[in-house]
Design a protein around this nucleic acid. Sequence first.
DNA 1: TGCCAGGCCCTCTTTAGGGCCTT
Length: 206
Amino acid sequence: MPSSPANSVIVLDFETTGLSPNMGDRAIEIGAVKLIDGEVVETFQQLMNPGCRVSSFIESYTGITNNMLRTAPSCEEVMAQFAEFMGNAHLVAHNASFDKRFLDAELERLNIRYAGQFACSMLIARRLIQDAPTHKLGDLVRYKRIDNDGVFHRALADAEMTAKLWLVMLEELEQKGVSNPSFGFMQTVSKTSKGAVGGLLARARV
DNA sequence: TGCCAGGCCCTCTTTAGGGCCTT
């Protein structure tokens, strides 16, 4: 797996057949944007065939139909391509624990490991944007008046909105005096993230 | 048969419970 520059961040989003890979759910689409120094330099989007039919709820929720997936490449093929795209960059997602579970599950099938750390835009937003009505991605985008094309629940569109939200929050933190916040947020999504993020925001005096 | 996730975080907490957020 290729290495990535230290200032490289990949914001990603999965559409899936359900909520839990442990319950047999699979990814059906991945979208990602690569940020270098806060600029989008590359994007990745691909439908993938999970090898099973998706429910009518998922078809309605995402707009991704069984017919669309019928001719899509397999999850294994797409995830191998994405691993090359991802390299060892740090990763960001909205409610990252969800996307990390699917990323880990799909890469494990390929015996691929990655070295980047995972950060969660939702956890940061809950602390930094406390007056937002909710911390759903769409609501935060509207609340912060971030440009969007009105497409939700598709992987690349959601990844692009998450990236914009991420940059807005970094800018707010810089204005609050955090000298180099982008890598301060690169904490893994794990039981240790509570203290790490809390400590960062304590320094940011939010 | 019926049900099915998991982690964070707040509070009426910590020997727990429930809302939020993701698909």
